[in-house]
Design a protein around this nucleic acid. Structure first.
Lengths: 116, 116
DNA sequence: TCCACGTTTCAATAATCCTTGAAATGTTGA
DNA sequence: TCAACATTTCAAGGATTATTGAAACGTGGA
């Protein structure tokens, strides 16, 4: 992930509806969720959800595929990893005192697995 | 770091000048850098730098202290850790396949220390 | 006390982003 | 082919954010 892309990704995550969309897509996994279903779940209009999904797509955080009449979105795990990594190494500039506490995140401690 | 704060922080990081300011402050460490010096280094006007520093401060990513005539800013490492952690556990929702690749970041592998 | 310095605040403008609803697109089944 | 469906696109308006320069503020030294 280069800086330009990271800037766009941070912008994408800075909006509540988009953050909620992304979270739904992350837990949904590779199977993804159709745009209409996303619109229902986050309770915003289809056209507005479409607008925000486009923005997430531009940031590389989600991808779209057509499935019959629906357009199914799914999270791009690589982009998310890349963004975390950008924060860690590029932004934190080799200061372990920043990264170290983050590594205590339950989902990331080896052998612990899933959160909650 | 709660969601509200994370949204503000992502917004703060989504602007080029602010990202550059934060990076300078991260490498500067607890000693910090005066506003005027930051303005020179990023080559924007004092009033504009002040505007962006305020935004970073609102996001909790930096703090300010007065030192004689200068106002010295420094990075809030805890907030950065918190943001990384937010991405990992809240956003990635317990999917190790997202976090795992991020852990390969050089600065974060135990025993490796500083990047570059 | 007064002046110069470093910084912030303010007001105005420009730029970007978000929301809305209507119209357009592509898809499926009858 | 036609109608209904799922979604996107577009244009318009409102809201937020960024930039600029001038004025105000607090500080330290003469």
């Amino acid at each position: 992930m280069d800086e330009r892309q990271a800037l766009i990704a941070f912008g994408a995550l800075s909006q509540e509806t988009r953050l909620r969309l992304l979270r739904l897509l992350v837990v949904a996994g590779p199977q993804g969720i159709a745009a209409g279903s996303l619109a229902e779940q986050v309770e915003v209009s289809p056209s507005n959800v479409s607008f925000h999904l486009k923005e997430l797509e531009r940031a590389g955080l989600v991808t779209a595929r057509r499935d019959a009449r629906s357009i199914v979105y799914s999270a791009e795990y690589d982009a998310l990893s890349g963004l975390i990594r950008f924060l860690m190494e590029d932004c934190c500039s080799g200061r372990p005192e920043i990264c170290a506490p983050a590594l205590a995140a339950p989902c990331c401690r080896p052998g612990e697995g899933i959160r909650q």
